[in-house]
């Protein structure tokens, strides 16, 4: 499960809950309500990058050897990557399994 670490006490909030630090949304890990997670079978993967392109939350990032790595902190488990994968290399697994 993703851990939310942008959370703070009310006294530490900026005036009117404003955000004064650019890029701070990285700290708010939004994947904690996911019920399923995608798992890639790298034997089937052809490095086409469609999972990376289609992911609405930019959860995949390219690795040095040409594959795409999943970051569970921001994945909501929508399954678009699994649906789009032309080689059926991505399987949705129930969280907790």
């Amino acid at each position: 499960m993703a851990k939310v670490d942008a959370i703070t006490g009310w006294r530490n909030l900026e005036i009117g809950c404003a955000i004064t630090e650019p890029g701070s949304s990285r700290k708010l890990k939004t994947g904690d309500w996911r019920s399923q997670r995608p798992v890639t079978d790298y034997d089937k993967c052809i490095k086409c990058g469609l999972c990376w392109i289609y992911c609405p939350d930019m959860v995949y990032s390219p690795t040095r050897d040409g594959y795409f790595k999943w970051n569970g902190d921001y994945c909501k488990g929508c399954g678009i990557c699994a649906h789009e994968c032309p080689k059926d290399a991505i399987t949705m697994i129930m969280e907790g399994e």
Partner: peptide, 15 residues
């Protein structure tokens, strides 16, 4: 600065 961002359940009560 960003004014008026989303107040997720983890922050709305504090706001």
């Amino acid at each position: 600065v960003t004014m008026g961002p989303v107040g997720v359940p983890e922050l709305y009560t504090e706001a």
